[in-house]
Computed example of a mutant assay.
Amino acid sequence: MRKKIVAANWKMNLTLAQGEKLVNELLQAGIALDAHKEVVIAVPFPYLITVKELLKGHKGFYVAAQNVAAEKAGAFTGEVNAEMLHSIHTDYVIIGHSERRELFHESNATLAKKMDLALSHGLKPIFCCGEPLDVRKAETQNAFVAKQLEESLFHLSPDQLKHVVVAYEPIWAIGTGLTASAAQAQDMHAFIRKQVAGRYGEAVANDLTILYGGSVKAANATEIFAGADVDGGLVGGASLVAAEFAAIAKAI
């Protein structure tokens, strides 16, 4: 059975005290996680150790970094490398989020380097892909996402891919007032799985967890997660409200 995951992405929000309160509220929200379900909380770098400690002993809860450097080490002021994240027992790391691609101009080649470094240090990447509005309007989203997969992911071995989670972000449906339907989400997830199957075979593709990252809320989570190829969500704003995120987590 494929792993089902709901991942919270706090982005650049919350003080440490606010973050601790949010985590404690989540842990008290009655989120039942069986062996194939996980909750991953991606927090700002300064909070990783604290949140990891808070989650200790809570089965199925994991911590993620929101980014990782594309270099091993050296004179890169302000960067955090994979070895550092591994040394503080970080479980997951988000790579290629649309905000990193757009605001920080991270290329597919850069993301491929990040994938390699993360995996070589025992981190599980949540690899983000997805198209902007102009691409969706031109109806070339499949080719756009296929290129992202080809240039950043498909150099990995089948064994490496087993440790990767993919998150599809329809950038055009995030904070724009537009909404991706459950059918549109399922269609792209199925396309991504088909691309993986073409490269690695059906068995590997069927084991790959693919998350949806397009403004998931408690109100639409059940419908979106009902898609045959949708294995959970990467949640932004809704993850900052304990009750809302707990309801989403209970929908997987």
Rank of each mutant, 00 (worst) to 15 (best):
S152I: 12
S152Y: 11
L153N: 04
L153E: 02
L153P: 02
F154I: 14
H155F: 13
H155M: 08
L156D: 00
S157P: 03
P158L: 04
P158S: 10
P158N: 09
Q160I: 00
Q160Y: 01
Q160F: 01
Q160P: 00
Q160N: 08
L161V: 15
L161S: 04
L161K: 03
K162L: 00
K162Q: 13
H163C: 00
H163G: 00
H163Y: 01
V164W: 06
V164R: 07
V165Q: 00
V165K: 00
V165S: 00
V166M: 13
V166W: 04
V166R: 01
A167K: 06
A167Y: 12
A167F: 11
Y168S: 06
Y168R: 03
Y168P: 06
E169M: 10
E169L: 14
E169P: 10
P170F: 03
P170N: 06
I171G: 04
I171F: 08
I171C: 05
W172H: 08
W172M: 05
A173R: 06
I174M: 06
I174E: 11
I174G: 04
G175T: 08
T176P: 06
T176L: 11
G177C: 08
G177P: 04
L178S: 10
L178Y: 15
L178F: 15
L178K: 15
A180P: 07
S181Y: 13
S181L: 11
A182I: 09
A183Y: 05
A183I: 14
A185Q: 07
A185M: 09
Q186A: 08
Q186D: 07
Q186I: 09
D187H: 14
D187E: 15
D187F: 06
M188K: 03
M188I: 14
H189N: 12
H189F: 13
H189K: 13
A190R: 13
F191Q: 06
F191G: 12
F191T: 06
F191M: 12
K194F: 12
K194T: 15
V196N: 02
A197N: 05
A197R: 05
A197C: 08
G198V: 11
G198Q: 11
R199L: 08
R199F: 10
R199Y: 13
R199K: 15
R199P: 01
R199S: 09
R199H: 14
Y200S: 02
G201D: 06
G201K: 07
G201Y: 11
E202P: 02
A203E: 15
V204I: 15
V204T: 15
A205Y: 05
